[in-house]
Write a protein that binds this DNA or RNA. Structure first.
Length: 561
RNA sequence: GCGCCCGUAGCUCAACCGGAUAGAGCACUCGCCUUCUAAGCGAGUGGUUGCGGGUUCAAGUCCUGCCGGGCGUGCCA
């Protein structure tokens, strides 16, 4: 609809160029916005304002000329000039109502597009190390990353969801030592407890399972505990598998699934880390100093050079990161989005710098990043900091158990990633209009309640008749709802382009609010069959869009509440 | 110190590529259940968009300097 108006304006511009009103060589970019205020019509263009200077004419005169030059069409009912020179378009209501027909025909496909042309994109998210249960921050990553993946799919991208984890390194060694200490019956405050060991109760569970010779299935691996408290390597493998499975169960409870689990250790096993080092040295961006091997990342905009290989011969985490992203590119992902906590933002520049230093044609901005800020959890007006099980942080599981999956997902995805988030447990639990997730779901359920009621009353819902009757929907509430429905595909596009799934959540809340108002102010199930079918058709279209949008957030759309 | 993110109503947040009178919800005041789910709706109160400059026909939005908060600034990940 918007595109059609842009096209009409482009034709008008071409005509005015011929007439010499607009300088022939002046590049014109036509912009059309949805009007914020309904007294400004449905769509508005600032065209005349931007042309005023190059044309040397007052904007209102130009607006008049543009309107005169507009081609004939049956889309627009009325055009106005307003304010300093805005051109406001009032769309013909019959053509507006067409959107309802489109929604009913397209169903779940409504709002989806093929902008991505089925190109491959990888979204990496969560990527927690297997050293404990997932915490709220991981939950935000899971909610945002999965929703972002859904949004990209809706925009025609072929998405691979990937989870990367460090299964070697110092933190894993610490995990192994902590588990070993528990297996030997030590507690965090006993002598002999490892320095900076993981103190949470869950470590005892791991140790007990290891001693009981339990078998763990995680990812593609099966690991059985040996019960040998001196075999640190066996303890490490077991603990990693145990906590990976634990995290899997958390993700499953959250409704998030991954296509690929990528192990840091595999980068060593396949020689990719070594190959990356070699390539970086060959490309001449490295040097040795203080017994370590450095990468001159300052050549690529980093503020200081970074160590690749430590004095002790081990690599820093940074190097496998570069090897990993090189591998992503070579797997054919021309586009990669990394969703991470903002506490890792310092890696952004150095990973990109490392990829540039390889000098193999990886684009400068590769990969994309979406960084989410911290989450603070509150209950009863107080900040909640601890969970018994994890010791030092609130777990994702705590939230799901307490407020449910839908509310947890909605709350974690409904705010822009780059602002700090307060997760109010009391609000998320409440079953009232205070709680946006119930509010939206209730709007969806209300439509289904209507359909059930209709049945009870012995009426059939005649969709064809409803579509025929759309022209009769002339109430302000109805026009506003139809306008809101028309915006949905643009919202999906916008959320995809800006990598901000939260935009969907805002949209749905607004749509639900309009529907609740409509429902309260008007009767749907009236005696007039045509009007009744028309209103029900509109309601069904609304429930379809609510369903589609909630699906992009990973939130369910129940038919009864 | 330096880098990144944020700062909008008492609170939680919107505001599409810079557009017209900055919008919702909560809270507070007042209304609406013999009528399709009141898990809902309506009305009112509430703003120097942290502060100061700049660019622009037009700035919450862009640039810049301060102030405040968060995160980072490891041969940790």
């Amino acid at each position: 609809m918007k595109d059609a108006v842009v096209e009409l304006l482009n034709q008008a511009v071409a005509r005015l160029k011929e007439d010499g009103v607009i300088p022939e060589d002046h590049p014109v970019r036509v912009m059309v916005d949805n009007s914020r205020d309904k007294s400004h019509g449905d769509l508005a263009s600032n065209l005349a304002l931007t042309l005023a200077k190059p044309c040397g004419q007052p904007p209102r005169n130009l607006a008049e000329a543009v309107i005169k030059a507009l081609p004939e069409n049956n889309l627009i009912e009325k055009v106005d000039i307003a304010g300093p020179g805005f051109i406001n378009f009032y769309l013909a209501s019959e053509s507006q109502a067409e959107i309802v027909k489109d929604i009913l025909a397209a169903g779940h496909a409504f709002g989806r597009n093929q902008n991505g042309q089925q190109q491959k994109v990888q979204v990496e998210f969560v990527s927690a190390n297997p050293t404990g249960p997932l915490h709220v921050g991981h939950g935000r990553g899971a909610a945002v990353g999965d929703s972002l993946s859904r949004v990209l799919e809706a925009n025609g991208w072929k998405v691979t969801r990937e989870f990367y984890y460090n299964d070697a390194g110092a933190q894993i060694q610490n995990l192994a030592l902590s588990t070993q200490a528990r297996a030997k019956g030590l507690g965090p405050d006993d002598a002999g407890w490892p320095e900076d060991g993981y103190r949470g109760d869950y470590i005892s569970d791991v140790a007990n399972a290891y001693m009981d010779k339990t078998t763990i299935d995680a990812d593609d691996r099966h690991v059985t505990g040996s019960g040998d408290t001196d075999d640190l390597a066996a303890i490490r493998d077991f603990a990693v598998a145990y906590l990976r499975r634990e995290q899997d169960l958390d993700l499953k409870a959250f409704g998030v699934e991954f296509d690929v689990f990528y192990l840091e250790s595999s980068l060593y096993e396949t020689g990719k880390v070594e190959a990356t080092v070699k390539q970086l040295i060959e490309q001449g961006h490295t040097y040795e100093q203080d017994g370590a091997l450095w990468l001159r990342t300052t050549d690529f905009g980093d503020d200081k050079d970074r160590v690749m290989r430590k004095q002790d011969g081990h690599y820093t985490y940074f190097l496998p990161d570069v090897a990993y992203h090189k591998d992503k590119f070579e797997r054919g992902f021309k586009r990669v989005v990394n969703e991470q906590g903002a506490d890792h933002h310092s890696t952004v520049n150095r990973v990109r710098a490392g990829l540039q230093a390889l000098n193999e044609g990886i684009p400068e901005g590769f990969p994309d990043y979406v960084l989410h800020q911290m989450v603070m959890v509150t209950k009863g007006g107080e900040e909640v900091k601890l969970s018994k099980r994890a010791g030092s942080y609130v777990t994702l599981r705590d939230l799901i158990d307490e407020v449910g999956r839908d509310a947890t997902r909605y709350f974690l995805v409904s705010r822009r990633a780059d602002s700090q988030l307060t997760f109010d447990i009391d609000l998320a639990r409440s079953q009232s209009s205070d709680n946006p997730v119930y509010y939206i779901q209730y709007a969806h359920a209300r439509v289904h309640a209507l359909l059930r009621k209709l049945n009870e009353q012995g009426h059939d819902y005649d969709q064809a008749a409803g579509i025929e009757a759309l022209g009769q929907l002339e109430l302000d509430d109805e026009r506003e709802l139809i306008t809101q429905l028309r915006r949905y595909p643009e919202v999906v596009e916008h959320a995809g382009n800006s990598l901000e799934p939260a935009i969907i959540a805002t949209y749905l809340k607004d749509l639900a609010a309009l529907f609740h108002a409509y429902y309260n102010n008007n009767r749907m199930l009236v005696d007039d069959a045509a009007l009744r079918n028309g209103r029900v058709a509109l309601s069904v279209a609304i429930s379809q869009v609510l369903f589609n949008g909630l699906d992009l957030l990973g939130v369910s759309a129940p038919e009864t509440m």
